[in-house]
Design a protein around this nucleic acid. Structure first.
Lengths: 345, 345
DNA sequence: AAGGCATCCGTAAACGTTTACGGTAGTATT
DNA sequence: AATACTACCGTAAACGTTTACGGATGCCTT
């Protein structure tokens, strides 16, 4: 098809070795020759064949981010992943690495899919997200020796680096705040699958309750699907409870909009009739009444994630601090009006 | 690192050629040998090196879908891309091909990014989405000879296959319907960039107006950002118009929720005070009053997209109909209450 | 002037596959 | 029994790079 390094070398009356060195900015090549080669490459539209290069170098220059299409990327928090991608790509850019997303079909087992992609050798390192409490992908990647990092902890531990948002602090702060305002029946939301963050959040919420001498009614742990419709459904379930909670904490960014819609249809107004604490999303700044919510520096989180990955790759060991990086990523509470409602005494 | 075909061959006392043939299910190899090889491969955990294979075969077995992270994947219609992915992957699965997403950083030129990815040889075929009226990516891919298909037409035409949603019909049906209900001041929404669908939609809306002896007031073409906040902004701009339109047509699936929110804050109720026609999104089934909206079979669209791509690849020429496929994908109007409002006589 | 050194470049092997070709058996055909 | 065919397998070249090694040239040192 197009020209290779061989054709380029012939055209320049040089050996392919020299051309390769010139293109890769290696030391022992005449600056003038280097210039000639560069110009000719541009003129002839030469692009290195990545397969040949990967074969020889044993690396691809690509980092992969795995996500599942069935879960609706967006549902997990809209700008959430996009912001993280931006952070990841910022770091990758410094090393001439690129990012691709591995899109696991909804009807396929995530483990099988990952296995296929890894055996394709599509990437030098992998980021997996939405970790489950028990996540076979982790053991698999570890056994294969592929550098990887997880966004989210897991009880499946292979000693890999991870970055995770501080859901403990989130639960504690939310509960503390609500209890201080007189609430005793506080609903919390939990994912409807084995997502690890759900377990972390629920455990912490329970602990925070007992720290105040309260106990979290199991009935008040409402399962959700991570999208707007899921928030709407939560509103329905919440209003249908025999003894209505006076407050609710939303674990997922997408829920607030749907919850607001569901509540408003029932004439229940956040901040006046019920206290709501949620998470930052593209919609949240526009919600009315303004949402009291947790926000994270997701761009920074993406950067940290990427740095943790690179630090675990031998090739970049000299650039990034050694040792496996594991960080709990801080979250910040933004005051709004949605939790202004105080429970009766 | 791990075992290669050479080690496998030594372990079996076979030549690498035979092992390769056995693994690739080629005819001239003893069934028993084939079995032995397969078992040994499994036992030793052999996985073919994709770089070596690609180098030799000249293909990667991967199809790439390019999107821009800056535009917020979700913003362009949430489940929109996810449904399309599902369709694409269904077809790809039939040919042992896989899908990856190329995530162009928001701050990088889409053309440059694509150029890098193509030169990486990361995929055998490329799908590009969100085509612009003038889209340099198209010329580039054509000049490189990479098989590709676009989701969306463009005035940059390189003879490539495309699939595009029927925005003409959408504009026509919406305007016809609204005019029939007495509306004469109908606002339409258009993307705030050079997206091709914006041009198509606006042109058709104009034609539909003149077919009824009306003219579309340029002031009523409201620019939008493709997400919920964009819908909210549209509501604001719409209500601020000196002479308020009696109807509005939303081109993007994400707009309706934000628009509803904006309108409701101003006490304006869709279907009672203004007619609204939008597009299907994950939220739309839950909106109240129910949204009159256009819906497409996006799963099927993804399949068609993928088939159009494969049909343009010599390798699959015998499986898919020859010739470059270009299809306008039908859209369907779902009745709701949001456009019940009839303009005065 | 002979040796040493630096600079630049060519040679060839290697990365892990695939595949056209030829070779060796064994079996069937004349 | 010579021939032809089939079934299976090994050999080796090829894909497009990178890179260790050595060779050639010219300059500087003694």
């Amino acid at each position: 098809m197009s020209i290779g390094i061989k054709g380029l070398a012939e055209h320049l009356n040089l050996s392919i070795g020299t051309v390769s060195r010139a293109l890769n900015d290696r030391p022992d090549v005449n600056p003038e020759t280097r210039k000639r080669v560069g110009e000719a490459a541009l003129a002839l539209g030469y692009v290195p064949n990545q397969s040949g290069r990967s074969l020889r170098r044993g690396q691809t220059g690509v980092i992969a981010f795995m996500m599942e299409t069935g879960h609706e990327i967006t549902g997990q928090g809209d700008a959430f992943f996009m912001s993280i991608f931006d952070g990841v790509q910022t770091v990758l850019g410094r090393h001439h690495l690129d990012l691709v997303a591995l899109l696991c079909p909804s009807d396929e087992d995530a483990g099988d899919y990952l296995k296929r992609m890894v055996s394709r050798g599509i990437a030098d390192g992998i980021i997996i997200s939405s970790t489950k409490r028990i996540d076979p992908r982790i053991d698999f990647l570890a056994s294969r020796g592929v550098p990887f990092v997880t966004l989210g902890r897991s009880s499946t531990d292979a000693g890999q680096p991870w970055i995770d948002i501080d859901f403990e602090a989130m639960a504690r702060q939310a509960i503390d705040r609500l209890v201080a305002r007189g609430h005793e029946r506080i609903a919390v939301t939990v994912p409807d699958d084995d997502a690890n963050l759900g377990h972390v959040f629920l455990d912490s919420a329970r602990q925070a309750h007992s720290a105040h001498g309260l106990v979290l009614d199991p009935e008040l742990a409402l399962p959700f699907r991570p999208n707007e419709a899921g928030g709407y459904a939560v509103a329905g379930r919440l209003l249908a409870l025999p003894e209505r909670p006076t407050a609710v904490v939303l674990l997922n960014p997408s829920l607030a909009a749907g919850l607001y819609r569901g509540l408003s249809e029932a004439g229940v107004r956040p901040g006046r009739d019920i206290a709501v604490i949620g998470r930052e999303s593209p919609q949240s700044p526009y919600l009315s009444p303004s949402l009291t919510r947790f926000r994270e520096d997701l761009f920074g989180c993406g950067m940290a994630l990427c740095e943790a990955l690179l630090a675990s790759m031998p090739r970049y060991a000299d650039i990034y601090p050694t040792g496996t990086i594991r960080r709990i990523w801080p979250t910040e509470l933004i005051d709004g009006e949605s939790d202004a409602f105080r429970a009766g005494r």
